[in-house]
Simulated scan of single mutants.
Amino acid sequence: MLKIRQSVGRTGICYDNAMAESFFAALKNERVHRTEYPTLMHARQDIADCIEFRYNTLRLHSGLGYKTSREIHVEYLNGMQAA
Protein backbone atom coordinates (compact mmCIF):
# COMPACT_ATOMS: atom_id res chain seq x y z
CA MET A 1 0.00 0.00 0.00
CA LEU A 2 2.53 2.65 1.10
CA LYS A 3 5.49 0.69 -0.32
CA ILE A 4 7.63 1.38 2.77
CA ARG A 5 10.51 -1.00 3.31
CA GLN A 6 11.92 -1.87 6.71
CA SER A 7 15.58 -1.09 7.27
CA VAL A 8 17.87 -3.97 6.39
CA GLY A 9 21.01 -2.56 8.01
CA ARG A 10 23.37 -4.90 9.82
CA THR A 11 23.28 -5.23 13.57
CA GLY A 12 25.73 -2.90 15.28
CA ILE A 13 25.96 -0.42 12.41
CA CYS A 14 24.40 2.73 13.83
CA TYR A 15 24.89 4.91 10.74
CA ASP A 16 22.36 3.02 8.60
CA ASN A 17 19.37 4.69 10.25
CA ALA A 18 21.00 7.89 11.53
CA MET A 19 19.31 10.18 9.01
CA ALA A 20 15.87 8.66 9.62
CA GLU A 21 16.35 8.91 13.38
CA SER A 22 17.40 12.55 13.02
CA PHE A 23 14.37 13.32 10.84
CA PHE A 24 11.86 11.80 13.27
CA ALA A 25 13.53 13.48 16.26
CA ALA A 26 13.31 16.88 14.55
CA LEU A 27 9.71 16.30 13.47
CA LYS A 28 8.64 15.35 16.99
CA ASN A 29 10.56 18.15 18.71
CA GLU A 30 9.64 20.91 16.26
CA ARG A 31 6.02 20.01 15.58
CA VAL A 32 4.30 17.00 17.11
CA HIS A 33 5.16 17.67 20.77
CA ARG A 34 4.14 21.33 20.41
CA THR A 35 0.72 20.72 18.86
CA GLU A 36 -2.54 19.35 20.22
CA TYR A 37 -4.50 17.37 17.64
CA PRO A 38 -8.26 16.88 18.08
CA THR A 39 -8.29 13.77 15.86
CA LEU A 40 -5.90 11.36 14.20
CA MET A 41 -6.88 12.79 10.81
CA HIS A 42 -5.89 16.29 11.93
CA ALA A 43 -2.54 14.95 13.12
CA ARG A 44 -1.86 13.13 9.85
CA GLN A 45 -2.74 16.19 7.74
CA ASP A 46 -0.68 18.59 9.86
CA ILE A 47 2.37 16.32 9.88
CA ALA A 48 2.14 15.77 6.12
CA ASP A 49 1.88 19.52 5.54
CA CYS A 50 4.80 20.16 7.88
CA ILE A 51 6.98 17.69 6.01
CA GLU A 52 5.96 18.82 2.53
CA PHE A 53 5.85 22.58 3.00
CA ARG A 54 8.42 23.24 5.73
CA TYR A 55 10.85 20.37 6.17
CA ASN A 56 11.40 19.66 2.46
CA THR A 57 11.43 23.27 1.25
CA LEU A 58 12.91 25.41 4.05
CA ARG A 59 15.00 23.32 6.44
CA LEU A 60 18.70 23.11 5.58
CA HIS A 61 20.42 19.78 6.22
CA SER A 62 24.11 19.43 7.04
CA GLY A 63 24.09 15.91 5.58
CA LEU A 64 22.98 17.41 2.25
CA GLY A 65 25.63 20.14 2.14
CA TYR A 66 23.33 22.69 3.80
CA LYS A 67 20.73 22.42 1.09
CA THR A 68 17.05 21.60 1.38
CA SER A 69 15.60 18.21 0.50
CA ARG A 70 13.75 19.86 -2.38
CA GLU A 71 16.99 21.31 -3.82
CA ILE A 72 18.65 17.89 -3.74
CA HIS A 73 15.61 16.31 -5.41
CA VAL A 74 15.63 18.92 -8.21
CA GLU A 75 19.38 18.43 -8.73
CA TYR A 76 18.81 14.68 -8.96
CA LEU A 77 16.02 15.09 -11.51
CA ASN A 78 18.13 17.49 -13.60
CA GLY A 79 20.99 14.99 -13.54
CA MET A 80 18.63 12.24 -14.73
CA GLN A 81 17.51 14.38 -17.68
CA ALA A 82 21.10 15.15 -18.66
CA ALA A 83 22.07 11.47 -18.69
Score class of each variant (00 low, 15 high):
S7T: 06
L60P: 00
V74K: 03
T39A: 04
F53S: 10
Y55N: 04
C14I: 14
E21G: 07
R31C: 13
D49F: 10
H33K: 05
R54Q: 06
V8K: 15
Y55G: 05
T35V: 01
A82Q: 10
R44A: 08
Q6T: 15
R10L: 13
R5D: 07
R31I: 09
I13S: 12
R5Q: 12
E75C: 06
C14Y: 07
A26L: 15
Y76I: 04
E52A: 04
G65R: 08
F23R: 03
L2A: 15
R5H: 06
F53Q: 14
L77G: 02
A82Y: 03
F24W: 04
S62A: 13
H61C: 01
E71G: 01
M19Y: 12
R44E: 08
D46R: 10
N56T: 00
I47M: 07
T11G: 05
N29C: 04
C50P: 02
H61Y: 09
N29H: 11
K67A: 08
Y37K: 05
L58S: 13
R5S: 11
K28Y: 08
L2G: 15
V74H: 03
M80T: 07
G65E: 07
I72L: 14
Q6I: 15
M1W: 09
E36W: 15
M41N: 15
G9R: 11
L27K: 04
G79D: 04
Y76H: 08
S69I: 07
S69A: 15
L60Y: 05
C50N: 09
I4S: 11
E71H: 01
D16S: 11
L60Q: 02
G12L: 02
S22F: 03
M41A: 12
K28F: 13
Q45N: 11
